[in-house]
Nucleic acid binder design. Sequence first.
DNA 1: CTACCTGTAAACAACC
DNA 2: AGGTTGTTTACAGGTA
Length: 212
Amino acid sequence: MGPVMPASKKPESSGISVSSGLSQCYRGSGFSKALQEDDDLDFSLPDIRLEEGTMEDEELTNLNWLHESKNLLKSFGESVLRSVSPVQDLDDDTPPSPAHSDMPYDARQNPNCKPHYSFSCLIFMAIEDSPTKRLPVKYIYNWILEHFPYFANAPTGWKNSVRHNLSLNKCFKKVDKERSQVRLLCLEPAYCIFFSTKNELISTTCPAQHDF
DNA sequence: CTACCTGTAAACAACC
DNA sequence: AGGTTGTTTACAGGTA
């Protein structure tokens, strides 16, 4: 897959729209095309722009674009999950998005078809889809397996890729065992999603828990 | 062509 | 001892 942060690299992009983030997130799946073609889809949110100069942290692992909307899945992800979930209601006659007509993917019909989402997107969706906005690694595995049966029969290397992404991408923050135990009622470290702004770690999903 | 992102593999350490 | 998790490095391929 190609670069995913072209907008942030452009000197004229002092702010980044949500749609740009989404288009980057789902570039490979054709969502960017959908966003461009489907005028009925409006994912733009007001006042979600980064201050000029906040993109200083342009590391290879910078995935700030994933978090320009704090409720990414709420605003659009539910339809995304519904479109890819094997547990999708069979009676759901919602017309497929243009993205699907362009690059169809149905986890139920094509369980052996590799999803066109990057591992970063898969991890992000898994964590965002959890009630506590954080998940232990094994639950991230399970979420991916549940929603993308392809990985059930895929070589085990995909788990390595998941762990690789969790370690490499700074926006995935590991919560230590004690805290995850207290707050998540689980006995293992969990990951939540962070993005950095001016060297500050800010949780977009659990603002009351900045003290990790 | 270059820079960058992504996927994959592998090695290694720590832990259970 | 073996499996899992976490980190790091390296490389190939694709895209702007």
